[in-house]
Write a protein that binds this DNA or RNA. Structure first.
Length: 803
RNA sequence: GCGGAUGUGGCGGAAUUGGCAGACGCGCCAGACUUAGGAUCUGGUGUCUACGACGUGGGGGUUCAAGUCCCUUCAUCCGCACCA
């Protein structure tokens, strides 16, 4: 027996698998299909991080197991390759992003291949390939044609130093990450996608998919449906101010109203506002903060009273002061609120700071002068005119009905979800395939002209005044209107990185199709993705955007299912050995290349799965990795004690069946760490016994194959049934043989374990009770005491309650 | 502030339904083999005032029985668009 030479073995089998194409998925097969997918990586210059393979290995294990169970498995890979870091590198080093991307992809490919994933490399996709983004643009045009894309003025982060627009990521503590200059909010016309039109369906259809519950909760909370009312306040200027509230029952407790600083009424009323200078100054100050900063600075409420303006409370006719404050966002509801400090803690903070009255209208709390009472489910109305005495739950509909009768308000469902800002003033993204014609307005380019390729540029810096770099491609911009044939200009903004990743699973189904993003046959065969694993950080943006696009495609009959992904699971992060996030600056980054070089891909994969609970964050440990390597080496060395018996030995038969069951179940439940623990225990059993039958060894290496595919494939040559283990049959177990005939039962006295005994597994309650009471030890311990009660649970325990 | 999680030995973690807390691995201790070991093998390893008691962040509760259910509280991590 040769010693375990992972270097030779791993290379050998990776080459063979590729030559034979054994992981290629065929689109027509009588077998049941199984489409497993991981979030395709952004090919960064830093290369693969040990976090990536956690997800890839997990679904590789599932894919490999399902393949062995006879499924027609599609496990694809691709590149989400548009993006900022590449663009910034390009700007700095004056290299085309295309070149950097190709280089990074080559490196990632090498690293992924070195880990032995069973990807179907023939279906590789790349979002920056014009043959791919042709269809990203095509889908955008379908949205545009359906009226789901529109232009709107939206704030962008503007660096006052670099004179360019910045992404949120590039803004650190309100200053530009690169030059340190102050960042302010500037308004710019942007393409928006109406995801809000799909808000209700995005909530409702969650019932039809098998996502982790926490993922569903996060999506629902992000969409944030609320039922409330719009209430109209008459202003002393004669204008009407509409507020949105979910607590219209508290209207009698409103003691002031607040407009967001950007609210259009503020400017409209400027002649009536006697302190308009102060108002303008506050607006400028608010514009300096991003929404996120407004959030962070939440504790200290700021605002300015609009002097000379009051609002009439529609419930009791009282005149209320009007404020502007940045804690009210123009993007949610109507951008205006009625403030009820007694029953909303933000309003309470504000009222305290500005010395505004706090009127209790819901009883049941402590003194509302000390803290807001916000419980919706308890209490009844007080100081509230016709609502007095009603519980809150009844007061809400009563008030809405009254408002509707009086014409002062109406029922309204609101969503937190906002439309998707789809424009980026960047080079390295898909060009938006629209032209602006002075006569016809925004016009889609003909589909026959797709892909609209990115123009070649010398430099990739953003343009003047926050324009896209494409604004410098003068020849490219100038075009003719597809509608009237007149002079027109192309849109120079590009799409966000989310665009390409919103539909890539569809391209995997038929990646080389020139006629359509995928054929009807491929779509109907492979849809939907059966199992999609990814990070929790993509739960609210990517996953939601992707579901939205899919539903639009469903509505135009382009895809056969309502939902793209049947099942969604999530992995935890891997931290450095110091329990900190891995980062270059901390110097705690683990490089997969080095790990594979020293211990091999099989040990790396096994450790990635053994490291801890799959969905939990957990630190890397070099010692733990070594433990997994030792385990594989022990498996390899078992060869010296394998005998010729093709079956299972009598004393290990039950253990074999139990292990098959446990490993099979654990893989499906993503309990990879306990699956490995079970396999380790079986190796301990083999070692202790000093011999293994060939039959046992064969089953063992088959179960281990998804985790350590190379080593087991090599062992299969000697101990297997011929062919490739990767496509051999997954072991079956006999349920009857996973159950013990005799089991150990614990006997407790008053809940403390006092004795253990072996009993037949199918002994009934009475028999169990008698056996326990007849035990000499128990007899001794209960002597002289009164047995109050005996709880006997077959297959579990006996608890004797004594006094 | 809001939303989502997590908290179990020296460490990573295990415990399908409320039923023996600590599987498996690391580390540590002892032994074997060895010229040698950061190799390999064997055994041991929750804590303590140890024939017993205590132990799953803290406090309370439900139960014959709680890591698991309920209330409360603390700490840490992640996300965020102050969502009215």
């Amino acid at each position: 027996m040769e010693s375990y030479n992972f270097k030779a073995i791993e290379k050998k089998w990776q080459d063979k698998w590729e030559e034979e194409g054994i992981f290629h998925a065929e689109t027509s097969s009588p077998k049941e299909k199984f489409f497993a997918m991981i979030e395709f990586p952004y090919p960064s210059g830093a290369g693969l991080h040990v976090g990536h393979p956690r997800s890839y290995t997990a679904l590789d294990i599932v894919a490999r197991k399902r393949r062995m169970q006879g499924y027609n498995v599609l496990y694809p890979i691709g590149w989400d390759a548009f993006g900022l870091p590449t663009e910034n590198f390009a700007i700095k080093n004056k290299v085309h992003p295309k070149i950097i991307t190709a280089k990074n992809i080559a490196n990632f490919t090498r690293q992924l291949k070195m880990l032995g994933f069973s990807f179907d490399w023939s279906r590789e996709v790349n979002t920056t390939d014009p043959n791919y983004y042709k269809w990203t643009q095509w889908i955008f045009l379908q949205l545009f044609k359906k009226g789901l894309a529109y232009k709107q003025e939206m704030p962008i982060n503007w660096c006052t130093g670099c004179k360019v627009g910045l992404s949120n990521e590039e803004v650190v503590n309100g200053v530009c990450e690169r030059c340190g200059s102050e960042v302010v909010q500037r308004r710019k016309s942007q393409w928006m996608l109406k995801i809000t039109e799909y808000a209700q369906r995005l909530i409702d259809d969650l019932d039809e998919v098998d996502y982790l519950e926490k993922v569903k909760i996060q999506q629902r909370n992000w969409i944030g449906r609320s039922e409330g009312a719009e209430v109209t306040f008459e202003l002393s200027t004669g204008d009407e101010m509409v507020v949105y509230t979910t607590r219209c029952d508290t209207l009698f407790g409103a003691t002031y109203v607040v407009l967001s600083p950007e609210h259009e009424l503020v400017e409209k009323m400027k002649d009536s506002i006697t302190n308009y200078d102060e108002v303008l100054e506050y607006k400028a100050q608010a514009a300096r903060k991003s929404e996120f900063e407004r959030t962070e600075l939440a504790k200290d409420k700021t605002g300015v009273r609009l002097m000379g303006v009051t609002a009439k409370n529609p419930a009791n006719g009282e005149d209320l002061p009007v404020f502007i404050s940045d804690y009210v966002l123009v993007t949610y509801g109507t951008g205006a609120i009625m403030a009820v400090p007694a029953h909303d803690s933000r309003d309470w903070d504000f009222a305290k700071k500005f010395n505004l009255p706090i009127i209790e209208v819901v009883s049941g709390g402590e003194n509302v002068q000390e803290a807001a009472y916000t419980d919706v489910y308890k209490g009844e109305m007080v100081n509230s005119g016709f609502l007095n005495g009603l519980p809150v739950k009844e007061a809400i509909p009563t008030m809405i009905n009254w408002l509707e009768e009086q014409g002062k308000g109406k029922r309204k469902v609101n969503y937190k979800l906002r439309d998707w800002v789809f424009s980026r003033q960047r080079y390295w993204g898909e060009p938006i395939p629209l032209v602006n014609c002075p006569k016809c307005g925004w016009v889609a380019i003909p589909e026959s002209e797709l892909p609209l390729e990115l123009p070649e540029l010398e430099t990739f810096e953003p343009g003047e005044n926050g324009e896209s770099p494409l604004a410098k491609a003068y020849d490219w911009i100038e075009t003719t209107c597809p509608c009237c044939g007149g002079r027109a200009q192309r849109e120079t903004d590009t799409m966000p990185q989310w665009a390409g990743s919103s539909w890539y699973y569809l391209r995997y189904m038929d990646p080389h199709n020139d006629e359509a993003f995928a054929s009807k046959e491929a779509l109907s065969y492979w849809s939907p993705v059966d199992w999609y694993n990814g990070g929790m950080e993509h739960t609210t943006l990517h996953l939601l955007y992707s579901r939205f696009w899919h539903k639009v495609l469903y509505d135009i009959g382009a895809v056969p299912t309502k939902e793209p992904y049947m099942k969604r699971t999530s992995h935890g992060m891997i931290l450095g050995e110091d329990n900190q996030k891995m980062s270059k600056s901390r110097g705690n980054v683990v490089n997969p290349d080095e790990v594979v070089d020293e211990f091999g891909a099989d040990a790396f994969r096994t450790y990635e799965m053994f490291i801890g609970a799959f969905d939990q964050t957990t630190p890397w440990s070099q010692k733990g990795l070594k433990g997994c390597y030792k385990f594989l080496e022990r498996v390899w060395n078992l060869q010296s004690i394998v005998n010729d018996d093709d079956g299972y030995s009598a004393d290990l038969e039950k253990a074999m069946h139990k292990t098959i069951k446990k490993v099979s179940d654990d893989i499906e439940r993503m309990k990879f760490n306990t699956a490995i623990a079970t396999l380790m225990s079986l190796v301990n059993d083999f070692s202790k016994k000093g011999s293994v039958t060939k039959g046992e060894y064969k089953t063992f290496i088959t179960l281990l194959n998804p985790f350590a595919p190379h080593m087991t494939e090599e062992l299969w040559l000697t101990y297997g049934d011929g062919g490739y283990l990767s496509i051999a049959e997954w072991p079956k177990y006999d349920e009857a043989k996973t159950v013990d005939d005799e089991i150990e039962i614990v006997v407790q006295i008053n809940g403390k374990v006092k004795d253990k005994m072996m009993v037949s597994a199918n002994i009934d309650k009475e028999g169990l009770e008698q056996t326990a009471l007849n035990s000499e030890r128990i007899k001794g311990l209960t002597e002289g005491k009164t047995v109050v009660k005996v709880i006997a649970i077959p297959k579990r325990l006996v608890n004797i309650v004594v006094k």
